[in-house]
Computed example of a mutant assay.
Amino acid sequence: MTVPAEQQIRAAFDDQTIRVYQAYSHHIADTALDKGTFISPPFKMERMTWIKPSFLWMMYRAGWGFKDEGQARILAIDITREGFEWALANSCLSHPPESMTPEEWIAYKHSKPVRIQWDPERNLLLEPQPYRAIQIGLSGDAVVRYVNQWIQQITDVTPLAHRIHHLVASGQPAEARALLPVEQPYPSPN
């Protein structure tokens, strides 16, 4: 088995869309599923919202949907690749590079509506891996674009998350692995 590059976007995608995941309360999830996008309220447009292309990293973050009521529902959101790539092109890392002064960092950060963070990817047991998964934080104009332009479909994958968790907990890793979404390296955008 080939170990992925340390920082490589891996996701389920096709020619038009890429799948990202988010976890929400029942109220936000039900409204989003009913309307086909996030509606404010209950969704808060003024807050940074984090999208995650990695299914297992989302499971780690939300505890398979059992962590707390605010993350009880796992949603798969298919967004346009054009929107995803716009987010990457209008992003900066969550932490400043050593080459920037604090003042330069503040100015640069305020010019970018998207934050990128690389965290250890997770396996079926939610253990950290030696390579990283990307988390993408959308704020300001990026959230508006996400909600109003990029979202193509929202699917509730909570039952899938619970099924995989049950299989892992009952010592059936092969069966659990067979249900995981297929995530491939995403072609590096210009």
Rank of each mutant, 00 (worst) to 15 (best):
D68W: 05
I106R: 10
E121Q: 15
P187G: 12
I74Q: 11
T2V: 11
A11H: 02
S188F: 13
I51M: 06
P185M: 15
I77A: 00
I18T: 07
G36H: 06
G137N: 01
R122S: 12
A62Q: 02
E104M: 06
F43V: 07
R177V: 04
I18R: 12
T37S: 15
A5V: 05
K109T: 01
A12P: 06
S40L: 04
S111E: 08
T155G: 03
I51A: 02
L88E: 08
K109P: 00
A32P: 03
P102K: 09
W50Q: 01
D15G: 09
E121P: 06
G137M: 00
P159E: 05
D119Y: 11
K52S: 01
Y131V: 02
D78V: 01
Q16R: 13
Y146G: 12
S139L: 03
K44N: 15
Q153I: 02
P113L: 04
K109N: 03
A5D: 14
E183P: 08
A5N: 09
D14T: 01
Q184M: 14
A11D: 06
R61D: 12
P187V: 13
R122W: 04
A23F: 15
G63L: 07
N90T: 07
F13Y: 15
S99R: 15
G137P: 01
I18E: 04
P41L: 00
N148I: 03
F38T: 07
D14L: 02
P173D: 02
P128V: 10
A133N: 02
R73E: 07
F55M: 02
R145A: 14
Y21I: 14
T101V: 01
E175K: 11
V3Y: 05
E46K: 15
M1A: 11
W57L: 13
N148H: 15
A5I: 05
L179E: 11
Q71L: 04
I28K: 07
N123Q: 09
E6I: 14
L125F: 12
D141G: 11
L179G: 14
E175D: 15
A87Y: 10
Q152A: 05
A29F: 10
S94L: 09
A12R: 12
C92V: 13
T2W: 03
L75R: 00
I28G: 06
K112D: 07
A76E: 04
A133P: 03
T2E: 10
A32T: 03
E183A: 05
W57Y: 04
A87G: 12
L126R: 14
R163D: 13
M1F: 04
